[in-house]
């Protein structure tokens, strides 16, 4: 028990030291920047290089001391250390990082559904399609009348059932916006592991 306490204390102390060092560095950086504007880039890069070296060193030391205790520490401090928003840790007024450009997956014969009531996914690009009050270009092929000719799957009867439970001749408003449920896919690495089983 005493051991754990001691380790956590060391961990806390090292964190504090690191934080003060960072603050100092930032202030010095600011002063140098205001002094010589022409040499901003070189000094900034040098400083950041030094900084990263030092922080790496301190981090390593900290890791060695406090790996077992990370969870406890987070609980004690009430904040977590390695949490970033979806847009990364760049400033709020900075531009977000560009997403890598992934092509839409084209799967001949369609993508298999993974559970019973899953809306089938779109196995082709829909870049050229538009859905508005005037037009729904998905229905160029996927309407009841054209689906056979275009060998495209037609909407299931549920799409024609109104809120009163009665069958309508046209796709009901609640089901009109295809992409609310049916989305195209890209061949990308999953962000998190998925253990879903039907």
């Amino acid at each position: 028990m005493k051991k754990i306490l001691a380790i956590s204390l060391i961990g806390l102390l090292s964190l504090l030291i690191q934080a003060t060092a960072m603050a100092e560095k930032e202030s010095t950086e600011n002063t140098t920047m205001s002094q010589t504007e022409s040499s901003i880039e070189t000094t900034a890069t040098e400083e950041s290089a030094e900084e990263s070296k030092e922080t790496e060193a301190t981090e390593e030391a900290e890791d060695a001391e406090a790996t077992e205790d990370d969870k406890d520490q987070a609980a004690v401090l009430g904040d977590s250390i390695d949490v970033y928003s979806l847009r990364g840790d760049n400033d709020i007024d900075a531009a977000s990082e560009a997403f890598p450009n992934h092509r839409t997956m084209v799967v001949d014969g369609g993508i298999d559904v993974t559970f019973g009531d899953q809306p089938p996914m779109v196995p082709h690009s829909i870049d050229k399609d538009r859905i508005s009050l005037q037009e729904n270009t998905c229905l160029k092929c996927h309407s009841k009348a054209d689906s056979k000719l275009e060998s495209a799957p037609k909407p299931t009867p549920s799409h024609f059932k109104g809120r009163d439970g009665k069958k309508k001749s046209k796709i009901v408003a609640g089901r009109y916006f295809c992409t609310q449920c049916h989305t195209p896919q890209a061949n990308t690495k999953p962000l998190i592991k998925n253990n879903f089983k039907d």
Binding site: K128, R130, S132, L133, Q134, E135, T137, L139, S143
Partner: peptide
């Protein structure tokens, strides 16, 4: 409707 939107009743 490849370069401009389709009108209502286009089908």
């Amino acid at each position: 409707g490849i370069a401009h939107h389709l009108p209502k009743g286009w089908k």
